[in-house]
Design a binder for these strands. Structure first.
Lengths: 109, 109
DNA sequence: ATACTATACAACCATACAGTAATATATAGT
DNA sequence: ACTATATATTACTGTATGGTTGTATAGTAT
């Protein structure tokens, strides 16, 4: 399973989800949220990005269901929607380490 | 581990890898390669994309180490570099199903 | 009501890139 | 040598989007 039909529509949806992770600023935001929920202004401070910029990226991540939002008074608090982001990033980091190891071996050999 | 330092440089590299998967055409190509290595023209036929387009996407995937290349005579044969692509796509598809289930429940409830 | 604050949104510019057509490169066959 | 074929590359166009500035919205406080 997990191998459904792979229609063009499904492929397009998957591509959109990957696109949400294909941007350093958004990865930075997700990384900041590891510790727990944060308000927009906390994320602005944590990442060094502009407020409008962070807000836009958060809408993007929200649309892709990578974060969840909770409003309280003036503040909007965002959290990671689930743990799968880490699985995804871990696999990617594993790949990168593999690449580096192979490249190093090529240079040594 | 796998949680190294997350420097801006590393984050940028990870984003680049995700970007390689953030495009329906490239997912289509990777999907076609499930069955084994294929030449460029076979991929052109399998995906319905233009030759130059497929070639460019293949260079992109090659740079991101998602595919490997083997030349033989006039032909270039491409294969999946490893199985991790499937893990990544499976996780994404799992997320999508989860999203659908939640949305359905919201409508029902 | 007025002032202040946090967030979202709209308008703008600049850049990246997907797709295409034309061309270049490389290999094979005659 | 010439011809044909497979792939790569270049040049171009249109679109998407990241970042910024300014503004709108919504909530709080006095």
């Amino acid at each position: 399973m997990a191998q459904t039909k792979m229609t063009p529509e499904l492929i397009s949806l998957v591509a959109d989800r990957f696109k949400a992770l294909a941007e350093p600023a958004r990865l930075e935001i997700l990384h900041s949220l590891r510790g727990g929920e944060m308000s927009v202004s906390e994320l602005v401070e944590a990442t060094g990005l502009g407020q409008a910029n962070v807000s836009k990226h958060l809408q993007f991540l929200l649309a892709a269901n990578f974060v969840a939002k909770r409003k309280s008074g003036l503040f909007s608090y965002y959290t990671l929607a689930d743990r799968s982001v880490f699985k995804l990033c871990d696999i990617m980091c594993g790949r990168l380490q593999q690449e580096l190891a192979t490249r190093r071996k090529a240079l040594a050999g």
